[in-house]
Amino acid sequence: MTRTFLYLGKKLLSALAALVVISLLTFLVFQILPGNPALIILGVDADPLQVEALEQLMGIDKPMLQRYVEWLGGLVGGDLGLSLRYRVPVTDLIASALPVTVTLTLLSLLITIIIVVPVSVYLATHNNTIAATFLSALTQLGVSVPSFWLAIMLILVFSVMLHWFPSGEVIPFSQSVTGALRSLVLPAVAISIGTTAVVIRYLKSTILDEMHMDYVRTARSKGLSRNTVLYRHVLKNALLPAITILGMITVDVLGGSIIVENVFNLPGIGRLITSGVGNRDFPMVQALVFYLAATVVVINFLVDLLYTAIDPRIRLP
């Protein structure tokens, strides 16, 4: 038991260290990036005196270390300054965009998991049948199709032609929960297809590997049927390595949502980043980059926790 805590403590420490490094890197990158924020706000041919005054107001003239520490404080306290472009607190912008992206990500993950497990099991158990070969080819296609193209096709077919789903608008949850979910289904599908295909291929091969393990033969020699062995023994062992790529999947899905939000015109974090980059809205982009990276670290930590909970062997490092 203490071993488990020690192990988790180590993981927690390394996660914290990663966060510090990420904040430092993000901060430094935005220092090196060309372009003076004050000039961006005032225009290139602004009065130098005015520029200087604004620089003071924004604190750009302070020493770098001091600004870093202040920024860190802001990150933790949720005060990220004003958006250069919208002149409202960055925090408010993020708060209004976050629910869209979170829902979209969760929905995509849900779709991924719902499809991945049965399809992988089918492919692994029906290796070499025509249906399995066809499905396998389909996953190959899924891996190679870019999500933005898929997003456009989905809009064309299901929104424009069939009118099954709305497009280009997002219905707030406060208005209608089903409506909101409906407006997110197509984008979520566009995001998850690629990930689903990758994970299916991965899980199928781990299932096939596991089926050749000795414990499977032992289980079969007890008189368990092939299917019982598959569901009671093989699947859990095969899903275990798949959990380690859960972190990678989430990162994938987050990245996908940035692109797909733009195609579907959804007011989420992805669109906020794109518009922030386009407008050189430094405080906002800087904060978003940090938060995205931090999310990845946190997710990987959670994956470690999950792994520890499932794999009894972890407790004896």
Binding site: D214, Y215, T218, S221, G223, R226, H233, L240, P312
Partner: peptide, 28 residues
């Protein structure tokens, strides 16, 4: 048939394998 064999295995005939280290399911 496979179903009939499942009834025989582990009940009328059992088997012990060489490698005890890997013969058991590590997660059970």
């Amino acid at each position: 048939s496979e179903t009939e064999l499942c009834d025989v295995r582990g009940s009328q005939v059992s088997m012990i394998f060489q490698e005890p280290m890997t013969a058991l399911n590590p997660l059970m």
